[in-house]
Design a protein around this nucleic acid. Sequence first.
DNA 1: TGAATGATCAGCT
DNA 2: GCTGATCATTCAA
Length: 192
Amino acid sequence: MILQRSFYEKDTLIVAKELLGKLLVHQTEVGTLVGRIVETEAYLGSMDPAAHSYKGQTQRTRAMFGSSGHAYIYFTYGMYYCFNVVAGGKQNGEGVLIRAIEPLTGIEQMKQNRKTEKEKNLTNGPGKLVIAMGITKDLYGHDLTTPPLYLDEDLETKKEFKIVETTRIGISQAKDLAYRFYIKDNPWISRK
DNA sequence: TGAATGATCAGCT
DNA sequence: GCTGATCATTCAA
């Protein structure tokens, strides 16, 4: 069951929490890669000084101002891409950064993409999971309700888990806002 | 036209 | 814990 548009059109903070435990699926030429989302951060557009979209729409952030359920992918620190899901349903620049996933399918391919053998190190950070999943800037603005890249319900491992709410990582503005969410005691998160 | 600034990571110490 | 790598984007002039 691919997550539909309505899933993303709820309040962005709700979407950020509900994305935990969902599956990120990328169908590539070399096989299907799947990871379970274990860590997210919300960015609330004009409400949020730490958001790229805080000062209004620019060429770089235009996807964040499109309809919910699309991909906002950005290049940062001269080396890395990060992957976000547009959310909120208000088309005002809100989105959720996917910070860490748990590798489920295509782990060998992920190891090749990341050039490492250590599974714990494959996807425990926003820049890392983009490389492991084979996500590129070609998917900028992609509709995440359609293949080859989409989010899915996790039917098999419908476990109970507790959500930890805390402050975001790597920002200098609005450091005090608890807009970061992760699955308690999950070994695949980027940091405590 | 140019300078500052990152929603990061790996490798050291 | 600290630092260097490395460059697109943004904003000021």
